[in-house]
């Protein structure tokens, strides 16, 4: 039996990404697309910088030839606790949940795109046209995730559908959520296990442990956005 405070206290979801383990294979990108019904914009639109990837691998080169190193950094919505996107939305289409998620409600979105302009991480994606899935991809649509329409903003939800399922499971078993209850698509698909997901409010969770690591850093912490995604620096940089 869990006690009452544990039951009522909402989990605080967070992710940790070990950059030492990331090989830039983009399995997370593909898994995310399939899980979250992300529209396929096609090569032409993609060339116009309109492709949508809730998670992307940013690749940066370091050093001069021939001593060049490539750094990979998977970037997804950082679920900032002080999110710049939230206060600027005129209709509360993006807001903060009690679980520390930065939510985006597609129905409510009118498409001012202000949130995307104010996001320092550039992780918000706009549906410039009605979404399309070239056959047979439409058969792989996930029934548990909304199909967005044109004119609305979308972004990573930390796989809210999986979070809800995990919470439901914990509830059935009458216990607090624990590691392994919720595995977002990107985390589950990572072949090198570079990504971790869990409740950072639970100090025993893997994410909370990693957040205390001396390699832990957050992207652009100096902006005061308080992201919920923790990156573990590469050891050669630590």
């Amino acid at each position: 039996m869990m006690n009452e405070t544990e039951k009522t206290q909402k989990p605080q979801w967070a992710m940790a990404i070990d950059l030492d383990r990331c090989t830039g294979c983009e399995a997370c990108v593909v898994a995310c697309r399939i899980e979250n019904n992300i529209a396929v914009v096609g090569p032409e639109e993609s060339a116009r910088d309109r492709s949508m990837n809730w998670i992307r691998i940013e690749r940066y080169m370091e050093g001069e030839f021939p001593d060049v190193r490539v750094r990979f950094r998977p970037v997804l919505c950082q679920h900032c606790q002080e999110a710049p996107c939230e206060p600027v939305c005129p209709v509360y289409a993006t807001y903060h949940t009690e679980e520390g998620l930065n939510a985006q409600v597609y129905n409510r979105c009118v498409g001012t795109r202000y949130c995307a302009n104010n996001c320092p991480y550039s992780v918000r994606f706009f549906n410039f046209f009605d979404p399309q899935w070239p056959a047979p991809l439409e058969k792989s649509l996930n029934p548990e995730v909304s199909i967005r329409t044109r004119g609305v903003m979308e972004k990573c939800t930390f796989c809210i559908q999986r979070i809800r399922k995990g919470e439901e499971k914990a509830r059935d078993e009458d216990r607090a959520v624990r590691d392994g209850d919720v595995i977002p698509a990107c985390v589950g698909s990572c072949p090198t296990k570079a990504m971790y997901f869990g409740n950072i409010a639970d100090s025993n969770s893997e994410v909370a442990r990693l957040a205390r690591s001396n390699r832990a850093e957050r992207l652009m912490e100096d902006l005061g956005t308080e992201p919920r995604v923790i990156y573990l620096r590469k050891r050669d940089q630590a």
């Binding site: 639109e45 116009r48 910088d49 309109r50 498409g111 795109r113 995307a116 302009n117 550039s122 918000r124 994606f125 706009f126 549906n127 410039f128 046209f129 009605d130 044109r150 004119g151």
Partner: peptide
């Protein structure tokens, strides 16, 4: 009718 994609906007230039 078509969506705002008929404009030249993209990510990151949303305005």
């Amino acid at each position: 009718q078509e969506g705002i994609g008929v404009w030249g906007l993209n990510r990151p230039v949303m305005w």
